[in-house]
Computed example of a mutant assay.
Amino acid sequence: MRIDVYVPLLLSLLLATVAAPQAGRRIAPALAARVLATAAVVTAAATTWALVLLALTLINEAPPVVAEAREDGRHVPEPVPELIGVAALAALAVITYRVYRAIRAEAATRRALRRLCQGHPPDAELIVVSSPVPQAFAVPATRQEPGRIVVTAAMLAALEPGERRILLAHERAHLGHRHALYCTAVALARAANPLLTPVSTTVAFLVERWADESAAGSIGDRTGTARAIARAALIAHQPRPARALGFTDHAVTRRVAALQTAPPPSLWPLATAVLALGVLPAVGAADATGDLLELLAHLFV
């Protein structure tokens, strides 16, 4: 346990600083987003569990446990220094608060987005808002409500007919591929493990790239899609609601440049390696769990 329990923390740093940038640049956006989101969630769960294991080692410092061990003449093992156990307990308290805040923020944002859609027919996919601010974004579906596309009149007026079709195809891709779930998953993973912040940023960019590629494929015009994104970015200066997947979000220059080249390959070997890197922390946490169970058996049996 002395080494295995720290493996998830070290591997999460490797995932964030090495694997995420490589996957974001070299793997097709759809595959890269899926792989990185999965790896982030598993890694965040493993690192949180590793902190739980470190905090549980404080059991052997509890006065009743120490007294009973001394009466029986048994040695009380110390798998990690007491200070580390205390630090892990404090980190768990911070993580709990961060995740709680992330969940509340997500719920509040979803309610705010739903309020934008109130008063419109339940089967209306497109909602045009009479606003001078050029914006366009997707509102994720819920169990009660379908996904919606919100576009302001100013945005529609600023785009040519062909560019409007690209915009709608982009937002439909967000809804059809449930990109909000990926963004929410990595946001919660980042709350549980701040080391994963670069992974969250990369996934946010990749879902936009994924929607770009989907729109370009459905329209059959990569250059036209790039031009529509660039044009919309020039006219959209106002911030859109958080968690709404917008047409002009996340590194527009990189997205336009990517659409002017051939679609990136899937590169399954690299994707598999990234996914394996996300699974390894769980393996380390599982091994550390076995070691802790042996410690508890030594204390109480």
Rank of each mutant, 00 (worst) to 15 (best):
P134I: 11
V133H: 15
L113W: 08
F137Q: 05
A124K: 12
R115K: 12
V133Y: 11
P134C: 15
A138T: 00
Q118H: 07
V133W: 10
P122D: 10
I127P: 12
R111M: 09
A112H: 11
P134N: 15
P121A: 10
D123Q: 15
P122L: 07
R115W: 08
P122G: 06
I127E: 07
I127M: 02
P121Y: 00
R111H: 05
E125W: 00
E125D: 07
G119V: 03
T109R: 05
T109W: 05
P132M: 04
A138H: 04
P132F: 08
C117T: 13
R111Q: 01
R115V: 05
E125I: 00
R115C: 02
I127N: 13
T109Y: 09
R114Q: 15
L116N: 01
E125N: 03
D123I: 02
L126Y: 00
A136L: 13
E125G: 00
P134L: 15
A112Y: 08
R110E: 07
H120R: 08
A124T: 12
E125A: 06
A112E: 13
R110L: 06
Q135M: 11
L116Q: 12
S130N: 12
Q135N: 14
V129T: 02
Q118F: 05
V129H: 11
H120N: 01
Q135I: 01
T109A: 14
P122T: 08
P121F: 00
S130C: 05
L113E: 05
V133T: 14
P132E: 10
P121E: 01
I127D: 15
A112V: 10
P132N: 04
Q118S: 12
A112N: 03
P122N: 01
P134T: 12
F137K: 04
V128D: 09
L116T: 03
V128W: 06
S131D: 12
F137G: 02
P132Q: 10
R115D: 10
P132I: 06
I127W: 15
G119E: 05
V128A: 09
V129M: 13
R114N: 15
V128I: 14
A108Y: 03
P122Q: 01
R111P: 04
A112M: 06
A108F: 08
L126M: 07
L116R: 04
A138S: 08
V133N: 09
P132Y: 12
L116S: 06
L113N: 02
A136K: 11
D123K: 09
G119S: 01
F137H: 04
V129P: 10
A124S: 14
Q135Y: 03
S131A: 01
I127A: 13
S131P: 13
V133P: 04
R110C: 03
D123H: 14
